[in-house]
């Protein structure tokens, strides 16, 4: 499914004294299978943008198209397309409610009209994709760890078979282990399904290791759009709007500026954005000499 956002502008409380411009002239296109990270500090418009993409908010002006159809049309076609978007909210585990993990995930597909057996089948598949299998399916979702609960909630959305998956800060508030489990689940979703993914994140290390495109919002405007390498090469501009850059990139820039390196005539490429890339680059430079 192609997503096209065209000159999107949104004004909250238009005409009232506390009217505010939340989104200004945002345009971009995403093709099927792309993985974009959406970054920007709190209040930059990330949530407003997401809510427009699945029709929860209507633009003041501009359009959101899915496969060329305006999501805000009242046609059955637009309605069907909106259903192809799976939105995983922040802290989605607060929305778990069923007696068992499997029943919780089945709720969505059953609502779409699938039979009991069909719903169970797609739910088991979705749960396996996020790494929840075996006896855990019959456990109460409330007795799982934080990372597991969140993966169950993500499976609940995957079981609806979306073409575009939107993850709003999927790792917020988790411990390092839960965090790593979510990232693994997202990687598996990526490999096994040809889904487009938009991930909102404050964690630049996650963005650098997962996304193939980064959209930067500031004050309701889309101010940058490019590959992680291109975006994170603009560290000064990102810091100026209160964003961080990946730890690896930050370190490589510091290392490249060390006068002692220049004295030795060593030249280091500071483009690495993940720890794996930094490790490789440093070993390439120093390993042969050691």
């Amino acid at each position: 499914m192609q997503l096209k956002v065209e000159k999107l502008t949104h004004i909250y409380s238009e005409g009232l004294p506390f009217e505010s411009l939340a989104m200004t002239d945002v345009s971009f296109t995403m093709e099927q299978g792309e993985f974009a990270a959406l970054i920007g500090h709190t209040g930059s418009g990330k949530s407003t943008l997401i809510q427009h993409i699945n029709g929860l908010l209507k633009p003041t002006s501009g359009h959101v198209y899915l496969d060329g159809v305006d999501v805000n049309e009242k046609s059955p076609e637009a309605r069907a397309l909106r259903r192809r978007i799976g939105l995983v909210f922040q802290y989605p585990e607060y929305q778990l409610f069923e007696e068992t993990v499997l029943k919780d995930v089945c709720f969505g597909p059953k609502n779409l009209g699938l039979s009991e057996e069909e719903a169970e089948e797609v739910s088991r598949e979705a749960l396996a994709l996020v790494g929840i299998t075996g006896e855990k399916l019959e456990r109460s979702p409330f007795n799982l760890s934080g990372g597991e609960k969140r993966r169950v909630a993500i499976a609940g959305v995957l079981a609806m078979d979306p073409e575009l998956l939107i993850l709003d800060e999927p790792t917020a508030g988790l411990d390092p282990r839960g965090h790593a489990e979510i990232l693994d689940a997202v990687r598996r979703i990526r490999e096994k399904k040809n889904m487009s993914i938009i991930m909102v994140s404050h964690n630049m290390d996650d963005v650098a290791s997962l996304a193939d495109r980064v959209l930067v919002l500031e004050d309701g405007r889309l101010i940058m759009d490019g590959s992680p390498r291109e975006i994170f090469a603009r560290g000064e501009e990102l810091r100026a709007i209160g964003l961080e850059i990946p730890s690896a990139k930050d370190f490589m820039e510091k290392l490249a500026k060390m006068p002692a390196l220049k004295e030795k005539g060593l030249e280091i490429d500071d483009g690495a954005i993940t720890i794996d890339e930094a490790q490789e680059e440093i070993l390439k430079l120093f390993g042969s000499k050691a």
Binding site: K254, M258, L261, I282, F286
Partner: peptide, 9 residues
């Protein structure tokens, strides 16, 4: 770490 790398031979 940067210092230590720079003092490698």
């Amino acid at each position: 770490l940067a210092e230590a790398l720079c003092s490698l031979k």
